[in-house]
């Protein structure tokens, strides 16, 4: 039996007395793209942050295994070094930190792809997300960039990092339709190279690039299966469900 790249077992997360994730179990195989689809407040981003190990997202129960090893108590940077990467839904602003510096600390391809220079890799990934490298590399990653620009730079940085498991939190939020198409293509290309991705989204058309889709509702995985089947279920059942307005678990 092939060991999954990521295996989550009965993960629970609480915050301020509210249950955010309720016994979530899911696995992701090597080279697989899985989408977590759900309404706002279902707990999707919290699941990604818990996998990444953010300090405010310590599970109250359950385990996270990565390449067969328990990483539940590992710090963010330790998980990153193991090969987990996160593209944030709303990327932070960094005063005085240049785009090229941000890309440099993200760059993980120098070891695996030494024949291509860092500058060429930056140029390549910025173009792939629809940004002109000459306009952006020497700019600060601060409030002078729009949310959409910072989002595209965050995606370029995450792809440049080339993690074994990429967590993409609402990868289309804040970016234009053309950018969304580019990002979907990048995810597909990324998976073809043997890497895995977990896409967090409330947009079924983004989930279309996934091999499997899990529908998250009120902190629980309601069902999981082949993408087409799950998307049909989501369109017919979930979009009219009254629970989508009551996603908070008490």
């Amino acid at each position: 039996m092939i060991q999954p790249l990521l295996q989550i077992e009965e993960l629970c997360l609480e915050s301020d007395g509210h249950r955010i994730l309720n016994s979530v179990s899911i696995s992701i195989n090597q080279g697989e793209v899985v989408a977590i689809l759900g309404h706002n407040g279902a707990g999707k981003s919290s699941l990604a942050y818990t996998i990444m190990g953010l300090t405010d997202y310590k599970p109250s129960n359950g385990r996270i295994f990565y390449q067969g090893k328990d990483i539940t108590t590992k710090m963010i940077d330790q998980r990153a070094k193991l090969g987990i990467g996160l593209a944030w839904q709303e990327p932070a602003r960094f005063e005085g930190v240049l785009v090229k510096e941000y890309l440099r600390i993200s760059d993980n391809e120098s070891a695996t792809n030494p024949e291509v220079t860092f500058e060429d890799r930056c140029t390549n990934y910025l173009k792939l997300v629809g940004l002109d490298p000459e306009r952006y590399l020497d700019r600060a990653l601060d409030e002078k960039l729009s949310g959409g620009e910072r989002k595209k730079i965050e995606l370029a940085a995450t792809f440049l990092r080339n993690p074994k498991l990429m967590l993409l939190d609402e990868p289309d939020s804040g970016i234009d339709a053309e950018g969304t198409t580019l990002v979907k293509g990048l995810i597909s290309q990324f998976a073809k190279s043997g890497n895995s991705a977990l896409i967090i989204t409330h947009q079924p058309y983004i989930a279309e690039v996934a091999d499997r889709v899990a529908i998250l509702c009120k902190g629980s995985i309601e069902r999981i299966g082949e993408a087409r089947e799950m998307l049909d279920y989501y369109y017919t059942i979930c979009q009219g469900c009254p629970n989508r307005f009551d996603s908070d678990l008490k």
């Binding site: 990444m52 990153a80 070094k81 990467g85 602003r93 600390i105």
Partner: peptide, 10 residues
């Protein structure tokens, strides 16, 4: 900001 940079492995 700190966690974003740490998520790059620093």
């Amino acid at each position: 900001q700190l966690e974003t940079i740490m998520a790059k492995g620093l």
